[in-house]
């Protein structure tokens, strides 16, 4: 076993570290090898260990049996009103989730309640519904001269004058509307069916001009030119 001075021993300060098990593993093994070979360090370690054990024994005998004191801190008491307690209990952190839950529950309940009150339409007798047919555009627009209309209908005495020739627009399946009523008031002598309407706006546009004598054969009235025509005297009426 070595014997040397304490000053030359490099492990003198490591005695307490090893004793309290706070030495790194590598240093611990090195210190143990040195301790087994160094008499000075061994005696020193024994002396320090004895002092430590006496302290430990003193603590065990006198302090460990003592009960842990119960610390009571006299905090100043604060008077809290009832409203403050309620507000502290119902803070926004509590209120918002509760309100959201209530709203969701109410919504779901209303949905279920509404669905439960609706009748079962599959079991009821439902009256047939008359659906109007879709509107069709006029199939054709015919311009019929008044004379032709009169000849076809046989009502020559009620034929209006030439400037009042109208164009009849025949539409099929067209209900009577405001335009038809207006035409009845305007032309009370013309019979209009529910399927007929008069396009008033096109009357003047297609009125015959004065120079055109397309009604010469039917018009038996006296003309001014006939009075001065000596070669062709006017017919006797």
């Amino acid at each position: 076993m070595q014997k040397h001075e304490q000053k030359t021993c490099p492990f003198g300060d490591d005695i307490v570290s090893y004793m309290y098990d706070e030495m790194p593993t590598g240093g611990q093994l090195e210190f143990e090898r040195h301790l087994a070979a160094c008499e000075v360090c061994t005696d020193d370690f024994a002396a320090v260990s004895l002092a430590r054990f006496e302290t430990y024994d003193w603590k065990r005998v006198e302090f460990d049996p003592l009960a842990t004191p119960q610390i009571v801190i006299p905090y100043p008491q604060q008077t809290v009103t009832f409203g403050e307690r309620i507000w502290a209990w119902t803070s926004w952190v509590t209120v918002v989730p509760v309100l959201a839950t209530i709203m969701m529950a109410t919504t779901v309940g209303l949905i279920f309640w509404t669905n439960s009150r609706e009748p079962d339409i599959s079991q009821e007798q439902v009256d047939p519904v008359n659906v109007a047919p879709p509107l069709n555009k006029p199939a054709a627009v015919s311009v019929v001269p008044k004379a032709e209309v009169a000849s076809n209908s046989g009502e020559t005495d009620r034929i209006p004058r030439l400037e009042h020739v109208v164009r009849r627009v025949v539409t099929k399946n067209r209900p009577s509307g405001p335009k038809s009523q207006f035409a009845r008031r305007l032309y009370p002598n013309v019979r209009l069916g529910n399927d007929m309407a008069i396009n008033v706006t096109s009357d003047i546009k297609h009125a015959p001009r004065l120079g055109v004598r397309d009604d010469e054969e039917d018009d038996k009235s006296l003309r001014l030119a006939d009075l001065f025509d000596e070669t062709n005297p006017p017919p006797q009426r």
Partner: peptide, 13 residues
């Protein structure tokens, strides 16, 4: 006895 016990206690804990 006590000193050796203290030494052993110091080493073993």
């Amino acid at each position: 006895e006590r000193k050796i016990f203290a030494l052993c206690f110091g080493m073993l804990g």
